[in-house]
């Protein structure tokens, strides 16, 4: 049986990226400002992590305008939602395994 720690996905497992996917798991889409505030990140830090997630096909980024103001919306792809579920499952298994002494 594979150890649950080996099921953790390196791209998803990073704390900020996991936080981004967790927020997106609750919503259809979130804008850049909401993510930045909810996760207490700087613009640069959030952009960097979003780029990693987008390159991995886990999120979709749409840039648009509201009036003259630019607005960036981010949504989790089906693959991103599945990756989040897998990650949460692996973390829970890991805890259960340690608690069970396995």
């Amino acid at each position: 049986m594979t150890h649950p720690a080996l099921k953790l996905n390196d791209t998803v497992h990073q704390r900020v990226r996991l936080g981004i996917l967790a927020v997106l798991g609750e919503a259809e889409r979130a804008d850049f400002s909401y993510l930045r505030g909810a996760l207490d990140l700087s613009d640069g830090n959030l952009s960097r992590h979003l780029q990693v997630l987008e390159e991995a096909g886990l999120v979709q980024i749409e840039k648009g305008f509201e009036g003259r103001r630019g607005r960036t919306w981010v949504s989790a792809t089906a693959r991103g939602r599945a990756a989040l579920d897998e990650e949460l499952k692996a973390l829970n298994e890991l805890i259960a395994r340690v608690n069970g002494g396995g």
């Binding site: 704390r15 996991l18 927020v23 919503a27 973390l91 340690v98």
Partner: peptide, 22 residues
């Protein structure tokens, strides 16, 4: 990954999710 780290990560994630739901 240590058990404590996994538990902390899950707690933090739940907080972020609850906040979004709220």
């Amino acid at each position: 990954m240590a058990h404590a780290d996994a538990a902390t990560t899950l707690r933090e994630l739940e907080t972020v999710r609850q906040k979004a739901r709220g």
